[in-house]
Write a protein that binds this DNA or RNA. Structure first.
Lengths: 163, 163
DNA sequence: TAGACGTAGA
DNA sequence: TCTACGTCTA
């Protein structure tokens, strides 16, 4: 089969540095940064505890996440928030959302990858941005009245600057 | 940007041999075999004429295409034939279907890639199977009463055996 | 089996 | 903007 770094881990991935760039989400999987092709939040289980390993914040899907000076606000998953046809629902504190909440409680590191639209608007590129901690999260009512989770993540100081 | 063999061409791709294997459809694009990530039929335009360059026949989508002794029957695209929720419609002789029909009229080569389910059923692998010619096509009524195109392609003799 | 911050081209 | 033989995990 494919040569995949299949061991999910929390924290840095050996050989991967901040600023490293990738072309496809499948590449993120191959190198061990993020194993989910189409999900923004990846996580692992320690016993019965889900802990986030990485998130991908991609531009261009209307999530209105913000990203400034090492502080990031990230929208949770589920509820078909970004879907157009399907009716939206309240997001639930399960799966990836639960994992991120647990990562806050246990203060475990989360890898952050930013998916940026290319200048020519043809596809995206993904840049690894280093390790973050979840500082808080809250529930919000969106304009459509549905519940969404908003996670605040802060970049851990002392990491080498992006190359 | 990405190093992509961006020149669409009809016929062999330099450096690619029958039997060569790939892991993702995006890899097919990078090496120049098939540029469409999610479409089965790729084509180019010569003036106003669309000609097929390559097709990908992937297992596991219920298309019931056949593939025996260098003779292949391939279902056209469109009409949401394989969709479950959406209503199906008649396929039309446009886009990829039109390109394949033109490839028959002009007897131009079509690269054939087979997407095989892996033994562990985790994803697919794609194997380049060499050059084919479209020998005929016909319209058929499916069980649900909708029109679909069926293309018969024959492997061009004299190609080196698959490695 | 379904859900999810995928991709490229028409 | 939409379609299309995607791709993985739970």
């Amino acid at each position: 089969g494919k040569q995949v770094n299949s061991e999910k881990r929390i924290g840095s991935v050996p050989g991967i540095n901040g600023g490293d760039e990738f072309q496809y989400k499948t590449e993120l999987r191959v190198v061990g940064l993020h194993s989910k092709t189409m999900h923004g939040i990846d996580y692992l289980k320690r016993g019965d505890l889900r802990l986030a390993t990485s998130i991908v914040a991609s531009e261009g899907y209307g999530y209105k996440d913000t990203f400034n000076s090492g502080v990031m606000f990230y929208t949770g998953e589920g509820g078909n928030v970004m879907s157009k046809e399907k009716k939206t629902e309240d997001q639930k504190l399960i799966k990836g959302n639960l994992a991120l909440a647990n990562s806050m409680r246990h203060q475990t590191e989360v890898r952050v990858i930013r998916g940026e639209e290319r200048w020519d608007r043809k596809g995206k590129r993904y840049v690894y941005d280093g390790l973050y901690l979840v500082e808080q999260y809250r529930e919000e009512r969106e304009a459509r009245g549905k519940l969404v989770y908003k996670f605040k993540l802060c970049r851990i100081p002392g990491q080498p600057p992006l190359t």
